[in-house]
Structures are given as structure tokens and as C-alpha cells.
Amino acid sequence: MKSLWKTFKQGIIYENPLLMLMIGLCSALAVTSSVANGLGMGLAMTFVLLFSEIVISLFRKVIPNSVRIPIFIIIIAAFTTMVDLVMKAYFPDLSKSMGVFIPLIVVNCIIMGRVEAFASKQKLMPAIFDSLGMGLGYTWVMIAISAVRELLGNGSLAGIPVMPASYQPILFFILPPGGFLVFGLFISFNIWLKGRMEKTAKERA
């Protein structure tokens, strides 16, 4: 149980897919211009990651090594398409604003990376905890980045205007360069946090 908890925690800070492993950045930078998008993308991603890791971990012994990548892609693509269909059916507005980035989850390095590096070699339980940790790690960073960008760049949070009417939104933050800036600041914050946590862990030991 303790090792499962550790696996789960890895994804949130120590091996955060966006801030430490630095994979899957393309869609992360593209959709984080509003909190609703960030949250929607995070959840869609977590869902696909969870089910792909479950299926691949269950079938890891019958997947021939030399065709594992095509098989992974088939499985990931199937779950991604399901998410896409469900979002179109029940959350049409969200689906519209995410546009092409939902189908693009198929080729997101986070899923491919975790499936290849973790699920294809691990038992079911660790795979579930890994996917939840990674998914949550991805989601919180997406929400945090999009909150900063939406607040400064559009004067609102989750679509609700929070800044006084006199506030002139800084468009820079909604645009890609602003995304890079906020993203960079988050990476440095995460590295600082990790350093501090390691220090306290050492002192305790």
C-alpha cells in the first residue's frame, strides 16, 4: 500500500509530467488560455491515461514485444475517440472550445510515455495509481497555468469576470508567448518546491 501511495505521489510533484518530465507540452500550452479548457483537457487526459494503463497492464503478457507500439496506439486511440464522442454528446460547448486537441490526445507523449515506461511492465494496481498520479499532476498544472493566463489575459476566472471593469486585460498572457512565460515560472516554482521537500526529508531522516 505504501509503495502504491508513493507511485501516486510521484506524478504530482517529483515526476510531474509537465513540470519535471516535460512531456506533452504542446497541447498543454495550446489549451490553457481558459480555466474551463484546462480542466476539461486535464480530465479527458486522465480518463484516457487511466483506461489505457489498465488495459495495457492487464494484457501486458500477451502483447508481442515487436508490435507493442502499434497496439498501444490502437488502445489509446480507441479511448480518445470515446472521450471525444462523449464530450460532443454531453458537453458540446467544451468540446467546441477544445477543438482539435481532444483527438490529438492519441499522440500525446504523456500517455505513450507512461504506457511504454510503466504500464507495460507493471501489475494492475501500480498502473492504476501511476495513471491517477500522472493524470492529477497534469490536471493541477493545467488548471493553475490556465488560471493565471485567464486572470491576467482576460480578467476572468472560469468565465466569470473577477477583475474590476477598469482592468485592461494583458493580451500577451492569452497568446502563446505568455503561455511559455507562465509555464517557465511554474517549472522554476516546482523545482524550488522539490528542492525544499528533499531538504526537509533529509533533515527528518
Binding site: 488560455s33 481558459s34 477543438g99 489575459g153 486585460p169 497568446l175
Partner: peptide, 9 residues
């Protein structure tokens, strides 16, 4: 009905 252009612009 549908537009995916840059938010804020």
C-alpha cells in the same frame, strides 16, 4: 456557431 480562434483576440 463554431469558431476556434485565439481567446481574447
Amino acid at each position: 456557431l463554431e469558431l476556434n480562434d485565439t481567446a481574447g483576440l
